[in-house]
Computed example of a mutant assay.
Amino acid sequence: MTRQPQPDHPAHPAYRLDGRGITDRVAFYTALGAALNGPGGYYGGNLDALADCLRGGFGPRPPFTLVWADAETARRHLTGRVFIGERPLDYFDAILDTLRAGGVAVELR
């Protein structure tokens, strides 16, 4: 019997982000860090740092899928306006834009 080699990690792993407690930016980055790097993990503290993490060296590097459970809680609370280039976006949409631009498939649940 010949064993087929198995990869250490799936080609496109999926991570679950628990969005129930995401009511401000700090809570988002805390939950994202935990989802991607375990309890107390780091994966950015603002949009620029998130973009840096997506380029590697701080945990999972895209491509991967982020399954964002209870995303509506964050959508209701992360409403402050920011600019991505010249486009004004609510912070929630700016997060999605940054993740997707970095190669993350985001599934909102």
Rank of each mutant, 00 (worst) to 15 (best):
P7V: 12
V104E: 09
D70R: 10
V26D: 15
F83E: 15
D52Y: 03
D70M: 02
V67W: 10
D24P: 07
V104S: 06
P60A: 01
R55C: 01
W68H: 09
R76H: 11
D90T: 08
L89D: 08
L108I: 03
G38P: 09
P88R: 08
G44C: 06
F58N: 13
T65N: 09
L89E: 15
D97G: 01
D24S: 05
P13T: 02
V67K: 08
G38F: 03
R75P: 03
R61F: 02
R100T: 15
T30R: 13
V106N: 12
A71R: 06
A51L: 01
D70T: 10
G41D: 09
G45N: 12
N46T: 03
V67M: 11
R100H: 01
Q6Y: 00
P7F: 04
M1S: 12
A105T: 15
P7T: 15
A94V: 05
P10N: 07
R3D: 09
A101R: 14
G44H: 14
T23K: 07
I95P: 04
D18Q: 08
L50A: 02
L32V: 05
F92W: 07
I22G: 05
F58H: 15
R55W: 00
N37A: 07
D70I: 00
A34Y: 02
R16C: 06
T65L: 05
E72K: 10
L89K: 06
T30L: 08
G19V: 10
R20Y: 00
G102N: 13
M1P: 13
V104D: 05
A34I: 00
L96Q: 09
G59W: 09
L17Y: 04
Y43H: 10
P5T: 11
D97E: 12
A69S: 12
P10G: 13
M1I: 06
G38R: 06
L108A: 05
G40M: 04
Y43V: 00
E107F: 02
R61V: 11
H12E: 13
T2N: 07
R87W: 03
G56T: 06
A14V: 12
R87I: 07
A101M: 01
G85S: 06
G44N: 08
R61T: 15
V67P: 01
P63K: 09
P88N: 11
P13G: 07
P10V: 06
V106K: 07
A74I: 05
N46C: 10
P7L: 13
G38S: 07
R61I: 01
R109W: 00
T65W: 03
G80T: 14
A105F: 01
C53K: 02
G85R: 04
D18P: 05
H9D: 11
R25V: 11
A27E: 14
L96C: 08
P10A: 11
G56S: 11
L17D: 04
V26Y: 04
L66K: 08
V106F: 05
E72D: 14
A71S: 15
D24R: 06
E107I: 09
L54H: 05
L66G: 10
A74F: 01
P60Y: 03
P5C: 00
G33A: 04
Y15N: 01
V26M: 07
L36I: 11
P88K: 14
A49E: 13
R20H: 08
G44Y: 03
G45T: 08
L17T: 04
L108C: 04
R16G: 01
A35H: 00
R75C: 03
A71V: 04
R100N: 12
R75S: 03
